[in-house]
Computed example of a mutant assay.
Amino acid sequence: MGTTQLAPGANLAALRKERGWSQAQLARSATVSVSLLSKIEIGDRALTPAVAAALGKAMGLTMAEVLGRASVTETDGVRVAELRSAIRDYDLPSNQEVHEDQIAAHLALAGEYRDRVDVARLLTLLPVLLRAATAHAYAANTAAGWMALAETYSTVYWLAARHRWMDLAELAVARQRWAVEQKPNPLGEALAARDRAGTYLNFGDCETGLTVIDRAIATAQNSLGGTERDLAVGILNLRGMTLAGRLDDKREAAREAARHIASAQAASEGLGREVDVHGLTFGPQNTLTHQLATCVDLGRPHDALALTDDLPAALAGLPPTRVAPTHINAARAQLDIGDREGALESLGTAWEVAPQMARIHPMGQEVFRVLVSLHRRSNAQLIRLAKLSGIAM
């Protein structure tokens, strides 16, 4: 499956050397400084998604390939093969009799595994759920049945994107879109557009991803009303601010990010609380987590950390899928301002909250690698995280 145990910066160095390129050649082609590239490769600076996208483009690779695919165990590899088989059979429903309440129960269970970032159990469940949801969608031929299938594909996309299995992520998004189009479903189409834009994000094509988002927002505003409109527009704007924060032109990035942040905040105020919809969460808290991450991507670590003076309280009640990445983003910001101990503490919190996510999260790996490099000597926390992550010190 082309997996790697290397942290992103180390993976970048390996990819460059495989091609026989010097640092000067790659830096020139990607329009980054040799000094920055050198620091990234030795671990004195973190490889950010935006820089990974630029370097990947110079080498003819996607951002996801530069960051490196997350590895899986042999058993999980078998489960991935079963999942791929179920996706191939998208138009070959089985004759099994499946009731709507069974699908709902399995989707709820998948949601629990996803929220807890229990990747092993989710990977075991998904092939079975996908075949059952396919059979039910064809048999029932209702908007609810097709939406349940689309939600299943959305979860497949989430799993694939977290591991940077981008071929599988793209296929899942295409099937998700196909499922929601079987019956009129404006909310489902908005959620599918959000995931489609995510594939552009992972490939480093943020401009096209924003085009997908803006078009979907306009459609949602015209076709939905009330709570459903707030949910669709809000969720799309969360993806929009992430895409905007990673644009090459930082002036345009700041302008676009501010637009999507304001729109998301307005939609979240309309809801007043966190709302779950088809496996996704939107509300004031989730908007803050995305705003914090976007500030870090924009190179504004002080703004990111100033969003709240009590991050655990601000994240209270959110699932580990949001809590762990937010602490990783806080660690990125703390590292950027020179607060190494704070970054180490935030990274440790991410590992405690969702160890399986922290293990496969590229920026979690990268921040840890840089902390090891900068500390020059080990301490108990670094040793503990090294054992958990599998990254050599």
Rank of each mutant, 00 (worst) to 15 (best):
D276T: 06
A58N: 04
Q102W: 14
L210V: 00
T227I: 14
L123G: 05
S373G: 01
I103Y: 11
S71H: 10
L231G: 03
A14S: 12
L298M: 04
Q334S: 08
R116W: 11
L92M: 05
N222A: 15
A7C: 08
N329K: 12
V72F: 15
A52N: 05
M63T: 06
E65A: 15
Q365G: 13
P93I: 06
N329C: 05
E366N: 08
S263C: 09
L288T: 06
R84Y: 08
L109G: 00
P301K: 02
H278V: 06
V367Q: 03
R359I: 03
E207N: 12
V370I: 01
R177T: 14
E112S: 05
V233M: 09
E228G: 08
G204C: 03
A108W: 04
L288H: 05
L371K: 07
T48S: 14
Y113E: 10
M393G: 00
R369M: 07
L92P: 00
L305M: 08
I360L: 08
V128N: 02
L83W: 12
V353L: 00
A306P: 04
I337H: 01
A392W: 08
Y157R: 03
L67D: 09
H327L: 09
L149H: 01
P320E: 12
L288G: 00
G299M: 10
L382T: 05
M63E: 12
Q265F: 10
I337V: 12
N141T: 09
V51E: 05
N11G: 10
E65C: 13
R114W: 15
G60S: 04
W178D: 13
A313C: 08
A160C: 13
P49E: 02
A50E: 12
T155Q: 11
T73H: 14
D44H: 15
W351L: 04
I217Y: 03
T289W: 09
A52F: 11
G338N: 06
K39T: 05
D339W: 11
R246E: 15
